[in-house]
């Protein structure tokens, strides 16, 4: 019972972190109509920038400055790169972001090398906030939780309750009409791209110290972010939230409980072969849930694509 509570908290932290990445990606998708392959690279840049800044000015300045730099870089890339490519259609845009992801990874390796960076949480948050049945909940985890909650609420407020948000929403669905009404749609797009990448930057800043800051971090998280927005429904903020939390909890609970495939198969009514090493299905019989935990979101995505191709909350087809 206690472990369930602990897992709920862990899953929530993972889920909300994922949400910070997928929120930006899904907004950018609604706008451009193509996936931004380089999105997770901005997450990596956030972590590296914050690490570099933290060496001179401490963690908190890193948290403040790094996302701004990442956001500005993102806006610049939209203005001078993507916008030019946009006129040639979706495929060149896709290839552009793909190339950008490779380029950023190489640049990071060039500047910081290939090793893990010693980026750690600030001293002030390095203590155990409380324990549930011997399981320590570090203060930094709760800090991550509060940060991502705060960002989600702020984002929701801006998008649904302010004039800027309404213009953005309108521009996402009917750009021609909004332009005709006298709004600067390219500026809106640049802003959305900048804010989206800045969100990824924030995620990098706060995840870097716990998940590790190394050149492979973008690749490790990149694929799961796409899975998230496909499950949630492309372009839907609520969908991104629900899917992120779902994935966070699925992977956490799957890793925590040693459910063996053999038990399930026996319960369903199959008979366990006497000598496993002779059985053709021995890999299936010896499988356990923690072994396949991180693969489950992909399985979920396949199921979603088969039964509900527009995702949980999406309005349009993938």
């Amino acid at each position: 019972m206690d472990l369930i509570l602990v897992n709920l908290i862990d899953g929530l932290v993972t889920g909300l972190l994922l949400f910070m990445l997928s929120a930006g990606l899904t907004l950018i998708f609604s706008m451009m109509g193509v996936l931004n392959f380089a999105h997770a690279s901005f997450y990596m840049l956030g972590a590296y920038f914050a690490y570099q800044i933290s060496l001179f000015m401490g963690f908190w300045m890193g948290l403040l400055i790094a996302p701004v730099i990442v956001g500005l870089a993102g806006a610049g890339i939209e203005r001078y790169g993507l916008r030019r490519v946009h006129q040639y259609g979706h495929v060149p845009e896709l290839i552009f972001t793909f190339g950008l992801a490779l380029l950023i990874e190489e640049i990071v390796q060039f500047i910081w090398g290939k090793n893990q960076m010693p980026y750690s949480p600030p001293e002030i948050l390095q203590f155990t906030l409380f324990s549930i049945a011997g399981n320590a909940i570090p203060a930094y985890k709760i800090f991550m939780l509060c940060m991502s909650m705060g960002i989600f609420i702020a984002l929701l407020y801006v998008l649904t309750r302010t004039r800027v948000g309404m213009v953005i929403q309108a521009a996402l669905s009917y750009p021609k009409t909004v332009e005709a009404l006298g709004h600067n749609v390219p500026l809106v797009f640049m802003g959305v791209f900048g804010v989206g990448t800045a969100l990824a930057g924030v995620a990098g800043v706060i995840a870097g110290p716990v998940l590790g800051t190394f050149p492979g971090m973008a690749f490790l998280l990149g694929s799961i972010v796409f899975v998230t927005i496909v499950i949630g429904g492309l372009g839907s903020l609520w969908g991104a939230l629900v899917a992120s939390l779902l994935i966070g909890w699925i992977t956490t609970f799957a890793a925590s409980y040693n459910v063996a495939m053999a038990d399930i198969l026996v319960a369903v009514g199959f008979e366990k072969p006497a000598d496993l090493s002779e059985s053709a299905l021995r890999d299936l019989w010896s499988l356990t849930l923690p072994q396949i935990g991180p693969i489950l979101p992909y399985l979920l995505m396949v199921l979603i694509l088969v039964f509900r191709p527009y995702g949980l909350f999406g309005k349009r087809d993938v």
């Binding site: 472990l3 602990v6 897992n7 862990d10 932290v13 993972t14 049945a133 011997g134 399981n135 320590a136 716990v210 998940l211 492979g216 490790l220 998280l221 799961i224 992977t251 956490t252 609970f253 890793a255 925590s256 040693n258 356990t288 923690p290 072994q291 396949i292 935990g293 991180p294 693969i295």
Partner: peptide
Amino acid sequence: ELHPIGKVKDFTPYARKIVA
């Protein structure tokens, strides 16, 4: 136990089990 190589983003759930 074994976990997938190079696929685990957050090891916290594994760590919880180890402590438990």
